[in-house]
Structure formats: structure tokens, C-alpha cells
Amino acid sequence: MPISLMLLLVSFPSQESNAQIAVLEVIKAGVKKVIKAVDLKIQRMQNETIWLQNAQKVLENQLSKLKLQEIAGWSERQKELYGNYFQELWKVKAAISYYQRIKEMTSLQLALVNEYNRAWNLIRQDEHFTLKELNYMEEVYSGILDASLKNMDQIMLVLNAFNTSMNDAQRLKIINAAADEIQTNYTDLKQFNNQNVMLSLQRSKSTAEINSVKRLYGIN
């Protein structure tokens, strides 16, 4: 980190804190917006699925009443019509599974932001860390958050992909890649937080000091 930036952090801690809080709120608001959008899409797709499933049941009931020779005598138009029903049903079910997965990913993304916010607020209260160490931690946290924002971009790409010619295999590839990255980001964040807590405990010089650190981080 440049010396000028370090001096700025020292001179204006309240401004830095307020800026970080503002950025976090923007990120959280964005994630919540995505979750809400996905919820609405899931609801709409589920309604379409119910309609298609009901239509499927009607068709299956009608088919069961027909004799084989009558089925063989169907016109090409009838075959195409009923075939489209089943094809649309499959497409809607596949879309719902995509959106459900995306919703799980965005929920994990929100948990990541909340975990960062909680840990960073506690660490800044911990007297066992130097300013240099806090600056390093902030850089690590910023890197994780930046990576998570890129994952959000991938999620939005998939959300918009249903209006494009992207096929199922391409969508699934993007979804799985983004899901793996988000899980990695969250795991890295948790591990980094645990390492910092353990370091603080190791630097504690008395039982009272250890208990104070445990209370700060909510450790039983």
C-alpha cells in the first residue's frame, strides 16, 4: 500500500470507516436486489410449470383413452402441438433449477458480505493488531470482495442469458463455475477470520486477556 494512502488511513479513520460501510451497503443492496429478482422469476416459472403440468395430465388422460390405431392416425399437426407441450414443460423445469441454484449462490454471497462486515468491525477493536497488520487485512478482505463482485457479474450474465441464444450446457457451465468461486471466496474469508482470531489469542499474555478476546469474537 502506498505511504500516502497509509497516512490518509491514519489521519482519517472515520472517513475510511464510513466509506467502507457505504460500499458494503451498496454491495448488500445489490445482492438483495438479485435475490428478489430471482425470487420473482422462480415464482413466475413455477406458475408456468403448474399450468404445463396440469396440461400434461389432461393430455396423458386423453392419450390413455385412445386406442393405438387412433394414435397412429393422428395428423402431423396434432403430434407437433402435443409435442410442444412436453418440450415447453421440460424447458420451464430446467429454468427453475437454474434459478434455484442462482438464488442459493446469491444468498451465499450475501452471507459473505455479512461475515466480512462482522469480522472487520471486531478486528478493528482488537488491540493485538498493528496498523500495518490492519492495512494488510483490509487488502485481503478487499481482494475477496472484488472477486465476489466478479462472481455477481457472472450470475447476472446467466440471468440475462435466457433472452439470448445461450444453450443449457453453456448456462450450466457458467453457473457451476460461479458457484465454485463463491464457495471458495466464502471459505477463504472464514479461514482468514479464524487465523486472525487465533493470532490474537496467541498474543494474549494472561487468562483475563484470553477471555477478553473470546468475548470480543463470541467464542465459547
Rank of each mutant, 00 (worst) to 15 (best):
A72F: 14
I102S: 03
L108N: 11
I182F: 04
L131I: 12
M156N: 10
L9R: 15
Q191M: 08
W90E: 04
N194R: 15
I210K: 15
K205L: 13
L81A: 10
D188H: 05
N176T: 10
I35N: 05
S142H: 08
Q87R: 09
N54G: 14
K28S: 11
I35K: 08
N193V: 13
T130E: 11
R124P: 00
Q191W: 03
N160T: 11
T106N: 11
K32S: 14
N54S: 13
W74F: 12
K41I: 12
Q191G: 00
M45G: 01
I175N: 02
I21C: 03
K91P: 01
L8S: 13
Y98M: 02
E133R: 07
L81E: 15
L216W: 02
G83I: 00
K36Q: 10
E88A: 06
Q195L: 11
M1Q: 03
P13C: 06
E209G: 03
Q78R: 10
E127W: 04
T164W: 01
V213K: 07
I123F: 15
N196Y: 04
K103L: 12
F86H: 07
F12T: 07
I175E: 08
E133K: 08
V31T: 12
N18Y: 04
T207C: 01
Q154F: 02
A161P: 04
Q15A: 13
S75Q: 11
I123K: 08
L131V: 10
G143W: 07
E139D: 12
E76G: 02
Q62D: 13
N167A: 08
H128D: 00
K132D: 07
L172R: 09
N114K: 14
L81F: 14
S17N: 13
I21M: 09
G218T: 07
A177K: 14
L159G: 05
E48N: 11
A55P: 00
A179N: 12
P2E: 07
V26D: 05
L108M: 12
A178P: 02
G218A: 07
L145T: 08
S11I: 04
N220V: 08
G143I: 04
A208I: 03
